[in-house]
Amino acid sequence: MGELWTIIDHEGGEVRKVSGEMLTAARRFAGEMNLDPAAVFAGTGFEHARERIGKFGGGKVYVAESEEFDRYLLQPQIDTIASLVRERKPSVVLFASVADGKDVASGVASKVGTGVVADVVDLEAQGERLVCTKAVFGGATVTKCQVEGSPQIICVKPNSFAAEQAPGEVVEERVDVTLSDDAKRARIVERVQQEAGGRPAVEEAAVIVSGGRGLQGPENFRIVEDLADALGAAVGASRAAVDAGWYPHQNQVGQTGKTVSPQLYIAVGISGAIQHRAGMQTSKTIVAINKDGEAPIFQLADFGLVGDLFKVVPALADEIRKRKGR
């Protein structure tokens, strides 16, 4: 029987949320397509990851564990997964549609000569093919597409599937990691981490609170951060705020920043120019807080609040903390 693989997205064995979502989807579609689900772990820290993988179904896990993965940039992952694909010939390979996941997927697909569809938000099994739904042009158009090569390499966006636990035993299959000198040409010499305040990453957060020009200055981003912390959310920023130097580019949501589709997106002091909407309009629930009742962001909002953000947002953060009982 053919296999449907999930490439585990993790950092040193710390399994990211999207992996649980993909493993849940993999179980479902493997069943519908009469395939065996299997996971692939490449990196370090498998002992730590094993428990998480077991919570979401377990089953066969190809484990390629080596310190080399942490020493060099992505090429060891690309080469190891590509040779495993050539050897085992899976039917479908799912990657997380995040920066590294898409890079490795693209690298593997070009090495084995197949196609890759990225930024997928939904899947449907049709015979041997998985039909992918993705939003293009910033969510203005929805397309259905498929990979015609083999394996079908598909990158699934975080928050597209609900993660459902289904404990199962992990059956480990160790994969030999042999790297060529070519895989070691780009070396990681230093990892610089800015103070993120323990917040989730914008790319995969279930809830994002974003600030824009309405904040009037960089110091006022703490209002947005405070609301984000009350909700356990990531902090985003509009292009106007980033271009003004108020917040880092990594946090920018929009056409020249990140495209996100969290469960909840709260836009604070953001007017909603097309360039911003292109990065967030596929969010499941949208809340907008703005003093201008005519701001285009309100056309997208499931709940729009016209008011002074400097009053409303701190009061909302307090109200949320009160209701959460802390």
Binding site: A109, G113, T114, G115, V116, V117, V131, A135, V136, G139, A140, T141, V142, T143, K144, C145, Q146, V147, E148, G149, Q281, I286, F298, Q299, L300, A301, D302, F303, G304
Partner: peptide, 16 residues
């Protein structure tokens, strides 16, 4: 090696 099967404009959002 990828094919677009269908494309449609996203339905307008219901007024919130």
């Amino acid at each position: 090696k990828t094919r677009i099967l269908a494309a449609e404009a996203r339905p307008p959002k219901q007024k919130g």
